[in-house]
Design a protein around this nucleic acid. Structure first.
Lengths: 340, 340
DNA sequence: CTGTTAGCGCGTTCAG
DNA sequence: CTGAACGCGCTAACAG
């Protein structure tokens, strides 16, 4: 079924068919109606590939992310829905670590002539992104340091998030607050750690070195961290984790060690992954709003693509965290009244 | 950058370029090398849209699923990776319930001329699928009743799964076993319920009507179910849930009610969603292997697409469940020794 | 306002 | 074994 077929059945030329389908130019209403009727009757849909070929734009956006990471599932959902609403198709690519398949991903996306690309990775795939901006494909990514002409970055305000956690804990009367962070060579993790030190200092709380441990955002680093701390002469009364999964590890091992949570130990997570609310106890955490991220990413890409680049849009936008109060924190030893 | 450009730089015709890129026909090795060198130098990638236009096939597979549903995330991952490996792009569509956007999904997929479509839904979207098979687009779906020429179905052996759960519980010495099922108008849920009744009977266990409740696979139906049962004069000593989320509800409410799990109540889930292992206690559950589903779906689509339809491939394949033993079940009142 | 025409980039005949 | 020519379905200039 092609424009030709439609044109024949409606007794018009293919140009007219094209015009009514795309709503451009002026077409006699009666002709237009005739065309529309035929289109509906035969269930005709224009061939996107032909369109892309002639127009040079594919109305397709690439999305590369760590699909299995639960943190990203809402981003994926929102991004896909936004695409759906704006008549953009989403091309999905799994995030692979080895460079061979990374190049394959570049190839696949390039062949498809995606109009834009969003990279949602916990690691920063600078080279990957350059391969696209170098090919004139606009990109959006999270926490990239040097946004340029074709690269927009979405910054997450880690410091604000950490401050929310620390202040919450301090307000509950916790002084011995521990921090289990992410890998030091992850910029985001480094920001979190620095922010933690800064915020503790602001409040006038000291950090004993044993309570500042480096993990890798995993469950295991949570279990390892809490195991080590439990052996300390002076245990912490609260711990903020750089990632919810780490917090899960803490809660789990805490349970095995017979540590009451939140009675003896308050724990705060980071990210607000979906399963946090299902934990026992439900996890208090600093939320990074995924929906906001997805919206920001999509919006940025749309800005790039749209004919009229709004001057207003800067090269970066920042996402603010929210503290989600659930049940894994309680008042600490240095304060008797609970005042959340 | 086009074939023309490559042809010019390599001093050959576009036909030759096309031949070496696609590896068809016989090309003089020295010419081939020259072409390949130029291709690599300029970083040329053929335009998929032009290819799709002339070949009639897009090397794109559609995947429509409930993205946010944690059960599907591994399917999504595996399916995407398989596509990646076989040089198929995956076009993602969110699953929407209202018919207007359903038609939009049909339109988007049709315009893209996907070579095949996988529908992973908890509800059966028969109409949706017919819109595609009617357009000569092969489909795979889960638990569809009437597979036909262009529709292959992936069956899940619910009965086997329920039997695994019931037998496990019976072996542990549970006689008062409850069942919290899914909505009756979901065929899969109906199968589970019937299987439960059958398996209990096989073993010689009776089911008191209060212990057979209909839910909707949600957390809430778990909390509601266990709340009602807790008020009974004779509480069940074990409960099998039609979905892990329901089990989560049971565990949570059980915790609030002071019911020891698994001490006083054993809980078995269904599906094996990722967060089940993070629960306290980690959830014993009947696993529906997502990876198998993804592989089966992808394989079926590949069968349809491949030039040589292997006669061997039938119109349905069935997935077998696995019992995953974790910590939410323990020996029951009618048996003192634990014999898993 | 409408129809005719020329490509978009590529695969694939068909002659050489 | 190679190159020239045609057409995939469509949009956008151009002419009527």
């Amino acid at each position: 079924m092609t424009v030709w077929e439609i044109a024949k059945r409606a007794n018009v030329s293919i140009a007219t068919v094209s015009r009514v389908i795309n709503g451009v130019g002026n077409v006699d209403p009666s002709l237009a109606r005739r065309v529309r009727r035929v289109v509906a009757e035969v269930g005709y849909y224009p061939n996107t590939h032909a369109r892309a070929l002639v127009s040079g734009r594919s109305r397709t956006l690439g999305l590369v992310l760590d699909i299995i990471n639960p943190f990203f599932s809402e981003i994926l959902q929102t991004f896909t829905e936004l695409g759906f609403d704006h008549d953009y198709r989403i091309l999905l690519s799994p995030l692979t670590r080895d460079s061979r398949s990374l190049m394959a991903a570049v190839r696949q996306m390039s062949e498809r002539r995606v109009d834009g690309l969003a990279v949602m990775s916990s690691a920063n795939e600078d080279v990957f992104i350059e391969a696209f901006t170098g090919r004139n494909i606009p990109c959006v990514a999270v926490d990239i340091d040097h946004p340029g002409g074709l690269l927009k970055t979405i910054r997450i305000d880690y410091e604000h998030g950490i401050r929310q956690a620390v202040q919450h804990l301090a307000a509950l009367g916790h002084a011995r607050v521990a921090f289990i962070g992410g890998s030091a060579n992850l910029k985001s993790a480094a920001s979190q750690k620095i922010a933690f030190q800064k915020c503790m200092m602001e409040i006038g709380l000291s950090i004993s070195p044993q309570l500042l441990v480096e993990g890798d955002h995993s469950i295991e680093s949570g279990t390892a961290g809490i195991t080590a701390m439990a052996a300390l002469p002076e245990r912490p009364s609260a711990v903020v984790c750089s990632h919810d999964e780490t917090a899960i590890g803490v809660i789990r091992r805490g349970f095995e060690l017979g540590i009451q949570i939140p009675g003896e130990l308050s724990v705060v997570g980071f990210h607000d992954i979906r399963m946090g609310q299902y934990l026992v106890p439900p996890l208090t955490t600093v939320q990074i709003p995924q929906i906001e991220i997805a919206k920001a990413a999509f919006g940025a890409l749309l800005d790039f693509v749209s004919a009229q680049p709004r001057k207003s849009s800067s090269s970066s936008s920042t996402i603010t965290t929210n503290l989600v109060l659930r049940c894994s924190t309680a008042s600490g030893p240095d304060r008797t009244t609970n005042n959340p």
